[in-house]
Design a protein around this nucleic acid. Structure first.
Ligand SMILES: [Mn+2]
Ligand SMILES: [Mn+2]
Ligand SMILES: [Mn+2]
Ligand SMILES: [Mn+2]
Lengths: 217, 217
DNA sequence: TATTTTTTTTAGATAAACCTAAACAGTATC
DNA sequence: GATACTGTTTAGGTTTATCTAAAAAAAATA
């Protein structure tokens, strides 16, 4: 059984490696975990001994098959709790992440099974991220970052980055949510910012940073 | 902010002292926490420095006003989560305690406020224990242990001890739950066991230990 | 009251997770 | 190819919460 700190490391490694595709550097992991490279080296050696990561000195780290499943189960819990908070307790989508960071470490298979059932077996969390099943399986619907589209494109917002409160509050302010229809009117060469129309009504300009964090399908 | 270990100590001190009435001995606390007297001495000194307990060497320990409020807020969370698990997730009353022991340490005032609302502001948990409000206030309804009653007494089960799974499963088996009407038919002098009738239908004999853990009103 | 027993505290160690500072490996630059 | 720079690991130390063993205080018994 892993500690909640170890679970958080595993989750971070999984995310930084693009779901296990690439090796993660010590520095990148240190930044993600808000800690020092030295601490990361210690922890990664420990996780390696527990065989939940593959690791060779100076070569970076990645999740093992076992580690990947553990990470996906924590992610499953995180996203189910986020659905609960929004759908049942009327939390706004910008208020759920920090609480879910705590709730994701509660150990009780029965609890998660029943919660899933109570919520009607949701497939996506409030930010549009897919919820893995007990075996780590989920359907990866193809989606494209708004920043990657061309002028004239029209698409529906299927997900947004679940990072900080500030970004989500900004989306609330300009009226973008999951399901919004976005039309790309113009792309400014200089800085990559975009003129877009939301639900064929409101036209606004968003920075490249914002466009990077909105996914369309 | 206290660690979850410190919160658990505070809660144990509060319970063992009869809600703060008496001083708790080091040995009693060690047994309750499944740890050693030496560890308790260490922790109690630490809690004393944080002013959440009153403590003088060799004199036992008790919660301070501040510590009492912290303990009651943890108890509030524990009991609200137990209600959630039973009423919303269909847990049996013997399955909730261990999960609630984890959930009670989640830090989010908004979560608890909303959970309370979602549950319809319950006053009692699934075992009949009162749920304190945000300020630690709760109505202590007068109740009497079944073992303290006399032959011929009739009463309604208002609470049962929320200790282990075994006891609650036993109550399920014999058909005792919150709200059951109990009549005391006979008390066996030798060992204090009691012949009782449940809901004017089923007659059984319960040991003194069992009778000690059932409260009537 | 003196002695024994019990309870409690202190001393010294350990493991987890972190830190800073120093050493080492790998890469880029002259 | 030597030198500088960046990234990573190791060494050594801290804090929290635990432990065992020994010392000290309080309570019980003779
Ligand atoms: Mn989240
Ligand atoms: Mn999310
Ligand atoms: Mn309980
Ligand atoms: Mn209870």
């Amino acid at each position: 059984m892993l500690s909640f700190v170890e679970e958080n490391y595993l989750k971070a490694i999984y995310h930084l490696s693009n779901s296990g595709a690439e090796a993660v550097t010590t520095n990148a992991l240190a930044e993600e975990m808000h800690t020092t490279p030295a601490s990361v080296s210690d922890m990664v050696r420990k996780l390696s001994k527990k065989e939940v990561v593959h690791y060779k000195k100076y070569q970076g780290v990645n999740v093992s098959e076992e580690g990947k499943l553990i990470a996906l189960r924590v992610i499953r819990k995180h996203r189910l709790w986020e659905v609960f908070l929004v759908q049942k307790l009327d939390f706004n989508w910008d208020e759920v992440h920090d609480v879910a960071e705590q709730l994701e470490h509660i150990k009780s298979p029965l609890l998660i099974q029943r919660l899933d059932e109570f919520l009607g077996f949701p497939k996506y969390d409030p930010h549009g991220d897919p919820i893995p099943d007990e075996n780590g399986q989920f359907t990866e619907s193809k989606r494209e970052a708004l920043s990657n589209t061309e002028t004239g494109t029209t698409g529906v917002v299927v997900a947004v980055e679940d990072s900080g409160t500030a970004f989500l509050k900004y989306l609330d302010k300009v009226g973008i949510s999951i399901g919004s229809k976005i039309t790309v009117d113009d792309i400014i060469e200089f800085d990559g910012s975009m003129d877009i129309t939301i639900d064929q009504k409101k036209s606004i300009t968003v920075s490249k940073t914002v466009a990077n964090n909105i996914w369309l399908a």
